[in-house]
């Protein structure tokens, strides 16, 4: 039985890292702590070790990013903002049956505390600049999920005179969830997909 332990090893080559994979293997750009898949009793010593090495490495600015990445993607805080129909399914996802909080997703009411903007509904031109303001008020790193067909491309209202045909005209979107409205399972799947995306990007 080989228990995984915290160890400093070469990172997995990621497309966002500078250089080719071969050069990254030669010179590990960022030390990487394998804290994925640790059991609870193994986690505390591993975290201690990671923190002690973190303090040493942080002076050189090497280690902080993967730790933040791991912590951030496992505790995404979406903005508590209901736009339209999808907001009801968004609320259902936090209800008793679907219980999104088991994934560490807790809606917050202030954009300053959020790192995820779930656009759950039709965006009109009247609310467009308010949406951009909210997005800009969120601290980096931040992500956007376009939930439902309206946020993705205008949905059944795309021809209307007051509707933005897709929220990606206003803010950069990371995950699109299809459906009118998407079921709560689809929303949870989208958030899990976003977690994978954050891991891949390594931001």
């Amino acid at each position: 039985m080989s228990a995984p332990s915290a160890s400093v090893s070469a990172p997995a080559p990621s497309p966002s890292a500078s250089g080719t994979p071969s050069s990254a293997a030669l010179e590990p750009a960022v030390p990487f702590i394998e804290i994925e898949g640790l059991r609870t009793e193994q986690f505390i010593p591993a975290a201690k070790e990671a923190l002690s090495s973190l303090i040493a490495e942080q002076a050189q600015g090497k280690l902080i990013r993967p730790v933040f990445n791991w912590a951030g993607r496992n505790s995404l805080f979406p903005l508590h903002w209901g736009l339209a129909c999808c907001a009801i399914e968004f609320a259902s996802a936090f209800g008793a049956r679907f219980d999104a909080e088991r994934f560490g997703i807790v809606p917050r009411s202030s954009p300053r505390q959020c790192d995820l903007l779930i656009v759950n509904g039709t965006v009109t031109w009247k609310v467009a600049h308010k949406l951009i303001t909210l997005y800009e008020q969120m601290p980096e790193p931040k992500w956007v999920i376009a939930m439902g067909n309206c946020a993705t491309g205008g949905g059944p209202f795309r021809t209307a005179y007051s509707v933005v045909p897709g929220v990606d005209k206003l803010v950069p979107v990371d995950i699109y969830i299809a459906g009118c409205p998407p079921r709560p399972e689809a929303l949870l799947d989208g958030i899990l997909k976003l977690e994978e995306l954050i891991r891949e990007r390594g931001e």
Binding site: T122, T124, K126, K130, F157, T159, Y161, S162
Partner: peptide
């Protein structure tokens, strides 16, 4: 009001 005005009455005419 009007932040969610989607023109449903107008779309209905089409």
């Amino acid at each position: 009001m009007g932040y969610l005005h989607r023109g449903i009455e107008k779309i209905s005419e089409d």
